[in-house]
């Protein structure tokens, strides 16, 4: 079996890797029952399919429960500082565009302390995959509200309920110009694995929000719509080019009335339904979809947007190439500068 690495050069024979090859020797220290286990498992299942040697993969994380992730994946890994993983990943990927880089972050790490860096990574379209574990709570600091906690949420730091409006990660990513925006959920392992795989193969900044249950500080945050027995009726799977249908027999649908989505109970045919299109340049459609929340609507899962654009790391490398082709790199001449004089 041979595989091309990310810079397109055929490597010599590399053995076909399996999930086990991506399990590190470190003891996993998340709470039993945490949704993080599922995300780790799906990632470890996804990685062999990328056909990239372990040593060319880097996981970069910030601080928080989710950010322990790199310790458990047997690739290169960098557990950095709070909120800064996107900045470190940008430097890493720009310096070495041939590497495959993942950023693992959470709703506090990525949207609160590191919101600025996340936004800029997405707008620059750095070719990395960002996985944001959204549990709508601070776990590692033991239960304060996060920027995605719903207003009124009672937490240790908000005994009478939060007075802050939450941020929608999908909207933020879309507004920042992310070229790939998707959402999945820890409990739907099949969908999660497929989503991570698609995201990892996207050329450009890929952003994946994963609804992740914190069974200690925010248990059941997504249960009302993401639990197995209700999921079919309360979530809608977005598929490119297909009408939005949901329900255990796909009996319901979504249509657009102007800018307003509407639930259609048992539509007679697909013609009246909204057809998903991930490839649109404008973000109007995914923005509308991101506004669909339970209980008024089924919650969308899947790819909201996927478009092609030059990557930051690619453009930086290209400029270096152009500069090298167009002028001689004469360091002695550079040091001497435009004007010299000779003292005899």
């Amino acid at each position: 079996m041979t595989a091309a690495n990310s810079n397109g050069v055929l490597d010599e024979e590399i053995p076909l890797l399996t999930r086990k090859d991506f399990v590190s020797d470190q003891e996993v220290r998340w709470c039993p029952g945490c949704g993080d286990y599922s995300i780790l498992a799906q990632m470890q299942k996804t990685l062999p399919g990328l056909k990239i040697p372990r040593e060319e993969i880097v996981f970069v994380s910030g601080i928080g429960c989710s950010s322990r992730f790199p310790y458990y994946v047997n690739t290169y890994g960098f557990h950095t500082i709070h909120g800064r993983a996107p900045a470190i990943a940008t430097g890493l990927k720009t310096a070495r565009p041939e590497l495959t880089v993942f950023v693992i972050t959470g709703d506090g790490d990525g949207l609160s302390i590191g919101g600025n860096h996340l936004m800029h990574l997405l707008r620059r379209n750095v070719d990395v995959t960002v996985v944001l574990f959204n549990n709508r709570i601070y776990g590692l600091t033991k239960g304060q509200y996060s920027p995605t906690s719903p207003i009124g949420k009672v937490t240790k730091s908000a005994p009478m309920g939060t007075t802050e409006n939450p941020l929608d990660p999908i909207k933020l990513a879309l507004a920042a110009g992310a070229t790939f925006v998707a959402r999945s959920v820890d409990r739907d392992t099949k969908h999660l694995e497929a989503t991570l795989s698609t995201a990892a193969q996207h050329k450009g900044a890929a952003f994946v929000e994963v609804f992740q249950n914190c069974n200690i500080y925010n248990d059941g945050a997504f249960a009302s719509f993401a639990d197995k027995d209700v999921r079919q009726d309360r979530m809608v799977y977005l598929e490119n080019g297909k009408p939005l249908r949901y329900g255990s027999n796909l009996e319901h649908g979504i249509r657009l009335n102007g800018f307003q989505p509407e639930v259609v109970e048992s539509p007679t045919n697909d013609n009246e339904l909204l057809v998903h299109d991930t490839n649109r340049e404008d973000i109007a459609l995914p923005m509308i979809l991101s506004g669909m929340n339970y209980p008024d609507f089924p919650v969308p899962l899947g790819v909201f947007r996927q478009v092609e654009r030059d990557t930051y790391d690619g453009l930086v490398a290209e400029q270096v190439g152009v500069a090298r082709d167009s002028a001689e790199a004469d360091l002695e001449a550079l040091i001497a500068g435009p004007e010299t004089w000779n003292v005899l």
Partner: peptide
């Protein structure tokens, strides 16, 4: 750039040092 230098105008000072750390981790 013709000397292989890559520069990044970062979004803030923190990003600048962190991007440099990323490049250092990458071996540059």
């Amino acid at each position: 750039k013709r000397f292989g230098v890559k520069t990044m105008q970062a979004e803030d000072e923190i990003s600048a040092v962190c991007a440099a750390i990323g490049a250092s981790y990458a071996g540059q």
